[in-house]
């Protein structure tokens, strides 16, 4: 019996696009879980908006991965027919929403990185990636502004919001190291001017975080042990549940047009 999962030939370029697509889709999915349940209507709107941007980014990146692979995969096959071990997203983005503070700290850590990353990627020698970067950078800048404002409000709001924001930072910090790691395949893309080295952005990322945390009267943890594995499909237990929901229709009714 053939496998229900598709096989993907992960050349460095395909893998590169898949990793960013998975980041965007998984985070967009997480944010979409808030829709209808946020603390205020304005945040139902804002979180849905950010989710829509991210799902849009995911679609472009999946389509590009499919094109780069050159087989008969497409955005939906890549999103809906790969299992947890084939997903390549950061562990950070698959972490559950938790409370509003945890969602916003996760967003803040990611957007502070994505904003710098996509801006740098606008200079990519790969014109498709440069175009995706140009669009994503504009969106990420807004996502970062939105998250930063909330970090400040929560940190410098009430005792309860401060405690929740600090707890979220302490909890999610260990998932931030992975954003700056690259493997050999990606190193090749960096040398070729297709990708940028995320490690080169870490200093500025940390400055953004420190500035906002200080205004929010919050503390960043001292660098400790960092979790890794998402980029090679070694995920937390949370991702499988997310995928079982995300993929339920395609798994229940294989091969249909929707």
């Amino acid at each position: 019996m053939p496998s229900a999962n598709i096989q993907v030939s992960e050349t460095p370029l395909v893998l590169y696009a898949l990793r960013r697509a998975d980041d965007a889709l998984v985070l967009g999915h997480r944010l979409s879980e808030w829709c209808g349940h946020a603390p205020m209507l304005e945040e139902d709107m804002a979180l849905s908006n950010i989710a829509l941007d991210l799902i849009g980014q995911a679609r472009e990146l999946y389509s590009y991965a499919a094109k780069a692979e050159g087989k008969d995969n497409d955005e939906d096959k890549l999103a809906y027919l790969r299992d947890v071990r084939q997903y390549r997203n950061l562990l950070l983005v698959e972490q559950p929403n938790g409370d509003f503070a945890q969602t916003l700290v996760r967003q803040f850590f990611y957007s502070a990185f994505a904003d710098l990353y996509w801006r740098a990627m606008m200079a990519s020698r790969d014109t498709t990636l440069a175009a995706i970067a140009a669009k994503s950078e504009k969106e990420s800048a807004y996502h970062l502004r939105h998250a930063s404002e909330w970090i400040i409000r929560l940190g410098d709001g009430t005792d309860e919001s401060h405690a929740r924001a600090q707890a979220a930072i302490d909890h999610l910090w260990a998932f931030t190291g992975e954003m700056f790691e690259v493997d050999e395949g990606e190193r090749g893309l960096i040398h070729a001017g297709v990708a940028v080295d995320p490690a080169s952005l870490r200093g500025r990322w940390l400055t953004t975080l420190s500035d906002i945390a200080s205004e929010a009267t919050l503390e960043l943890p001292q660098n400790g042990w960092m979790q890794q594995g998402g980029r090679v499909g070694r995920h937390s237990e949370h991702l499988g549940h997310l995928l079982s929901e995300l993929q339920s229709m395609q798994r229940t009714f294989p091969g249909q047009t929707w």
């Binding site: 979409s32 995911a58 939906d76 999103a79 809906y80 929901e245 229709m249 009714f253 929707w258």
Partner: peptide, 8 residues
């Protein structure tokens, strides 16, 4: 929303 059958 979390179970829509395609990304579109």
């Amino acid at each position: 929303i979390t179970r829509a059958p395609t990304l579109r």
